[in-house]
Nucleic acid binder design. Structure first.
Length: 225
DNA sequence: GGCCAGGACACCA
DNA sequence: TGGTGTCATGGC
């Protein structure tokens, strides 16, 4: 039974290889990407990021000055673009009002306090806050997404309706508190999530086959009365 | 043309 | 407090 989180991690890493997350050049780009990727596939985010970069808008100062309407047109590809423009502006308002627009200053806050402050910003929920803390700030917060919940509940290691903090605690209490490990682990689970969604049939050489089979079998068992 | 994809929020019972 | 509607693009 695949209950050892480090063992699962190493098998995923051996199969998918290092994923070099987050795919961004600067911490600010991570933050913008974390908001834009809400409920949308990453390839749509890439278009918006490229658009913003080419327009020279990927700095806090430039984006803070940019009119909301212009921002909306640049991020249209990411769905819910009006909401997301509002969310990015809400973050920038927080950044400039509380930290003078300086991300380094923001990241000097104690991590738990920064997390609480991020969660108070419109449009930043737990997953987005933790993505910012881990991938832009380098703090050891495990990012929980829908793939993580789905995979581990189907493995029978977590209840199906486990809440965000429960899932996060599950990982954070069973793994060394290492930002690099949390970074790569989340990236690997994303890869597995995509793999389980799309790879049919499973490749016979897949080193994850017993893990995948176990997950499927568990899922089928749950369907039975 | 319909379905779905790496959330978050507001509102209501 | 948990469930549901809303937001409203683009690829397949």
């Amino acid at each position: 039974m695949p209950g050892d989180l480090l063992e699962i991690f190493h098998r995923l890493l051996a199969h998918f290889g290092p994923r070099h997350w987050w795919p961004a050049k600067t911490p600010f780009e991570v933050i913008v990407g974390a908001i834009l990727t809400q409920a949308v596939a990453w390839y749509n985010v890439e278009k918006a990021i490229t658009c913003l970069e080419e327009a020279g808008l990927l700095t806090p100062e430039a984006l803070y000055r940019c009119p909301t309407e212009r921002l909306e047109t640049m991020i249209r590809a990411t769905r819910y673009y009006r909401e997301k423009a509002k969310k990015i502006k809400a973050f920038l308002t927080y950044l400039f009002q509380n930290h003078g627009g300086d991300l380094d200053r923001m990241f000097r806050l104690p991590p738990d306090r920064l997390r609480r402050e991020l969660l108070e910003i419109y449009g930043i929920g737990e997953e987005t806050a933790d993505s910012i803390l881990l991938y832009a700030g380098g703090f050891p917060f495990f990012v929980v997404d829908s793939y993580t919940k789905r995979i581990f509940s189907r493995l029978g290691l977590l209840p199906e309706k486990a809440g965000y903090r429960m899932v996060q605690d599950f990982f954070q209490t069973r793994l060394p508190k290492d930002p690099q490990l949390f970074n790569e682990y989340h990236a690997q689970l994303d890869a597995l999530g995509h793999y389980l969604c799309k790879a049919r049939p499973l490749c016979p050489e897949c080193p994850l086959l017993d893990l995948c089979a176990y997950a499927r079998e568990n899922r089928e068992n749950k369907k039975r009365p």
